[in-house]
Amino acid sequence: DEVRLHVNGHTIEFRGIDEEIFKILEEAAKRGADEEELRRLAEKLLR
């Protein structure tokens, strides 16, 4: 299960996240989070 999030012209792939987590990451990206911040956030949410 892989999703792709487009951030500042880059595509970031995440594996094993559900739609709810994806929406949180998408919102963070809209607020200016970079790839590293998004990955840290995803790790926290998946715990």
Score class of each variant (00 low, 15 high):
residue 45 L to D: 00
residue 25 L to Y: 01
residue 20 E to A: 13
residue 20 E to L: 11
residue 16 G to K: 02
residue 10 H to K: 14
residue 32 G to W: 03
residue 47 R to C: 07
residue 39 R to D: 01
residue 6 H to A: 06
residue 4 R to P: 04
residue 46 L to P: 02
residue 15 R to E: 06
residue 16 G to L: 03
residue 25 L to W: 01
residue 32 G to K: 01
residue 17 I to R: 02
residue 35 E to T: 06
residue 45 L to I: 05
residue 36 E to H: 12
residue 41 L to E: 01
residue 2 E to R: 11
residue 37 E to Q: 12
residue 7 V to F: 06
residue 16 G to S: 03
residue 36 E to K: 13
residue 6 H to K: 10
residue 24 I to H: 08
residue 33 A to Y: 12
residue 47 R to E: 09
residue 5 L to N: 02
residue 1 D to E: 11
residue 46 L to Y: 06
residue 42 A to K: 02
residue 31 R to H: 12
residue 15 R to G: 07
residue 42 A to I: 07
residue 28 A to I: 06
residue 26 E to Q: 14
residue 44 K to Q: 09
residue 4 R to S: 11
residue 46 L to S: 11
residue 42 A to R: 01
residue 16 G to H: 06
residue 44 K to S: 11
residue 34 D to P: 07
residue 3 V to D: 04
residue 12 I to N: 01
residue 11 T to F: 15
residue 39 R to I: 12
residue 4 R to I: 14
residue 30 K to T: 08
residue 15 R to I: 13
residue 21 I to W: 04
residue 44 K to P: 00
residue 29 A to M: 08
residue 43 E to C: 15
residue 9 G to F: 03
residue 9 G to W: 02
residue 14 F to K: 01
residue 47 R to P: 04
residue 13 E to W: 08
residue 26 E to A: 11
residue 9 G to L: 03
residue 27 E to N: 09
residue 11 T to K: 03
residue 14 F to H: 01
residue 4 R to M: 08
residue 32 G to P: 00
residue 3 V to K: 15
residue 14 F to M: 04
residue 10 H to M: 13
residue 30 K to G: 08
residue 21 I to N: 12
residue 35 E to K: 05
residue 35 E to D: 05
residue 3 V to A: 07
residue 20 E to M: 13
residue 27 E to G: 09
residue 12 I to A: 01
residue 41 L to A: 01
residue 45 L to W: 08
residue 45 L to F: 07
residue 30 K to P: 00
residue 34 D to V: 09
residue 46 L to I: 12
residue 35 E to Y: 10
residue 15 R to S: 11
residue 13 E to P: 01
residue 31 R to S: 10
residue 21 I to K: 08
residue 22 F to L: 07
residue 9 G to R: 00
residue 18 D to A: 07
residue 40 R to N: 10
residue 7 V to C: 04
residue 46 L to G: 04
residue 14 F to G: 01
residue 23 K to W: 09
residue 22 F to Y: 11
residue 22 F to P: 00
residue 47 R to A: 11
residue 3 V to T: 07
residue 38 L to P: 00
residue 14 F to N: 01
residue 46 L to F: 08
residue 35 E to W: 10
residue 2 E to A: 10
residue 17 I to D: 03
residue 25 L to G: 00
residue 42 A to T: 03
residue 33 A to L: 10
residue 40 R to G: 08
residue 3 V to M: 15
residue 19 E to D: 11
residue 38 L to Q: 00
residue 23 K to D: 04
residue 1 D to I: 13
residue 30 K to Q: 09
residue 33 A to C: 07
residue 17 I to C: 05
residue 6 H to V: 15
residue 14 F to A: 02
residue 10 H to E: 09
residue 8 N to S: 04
residue 38 L to K: 00
residue 15 R to C: 04
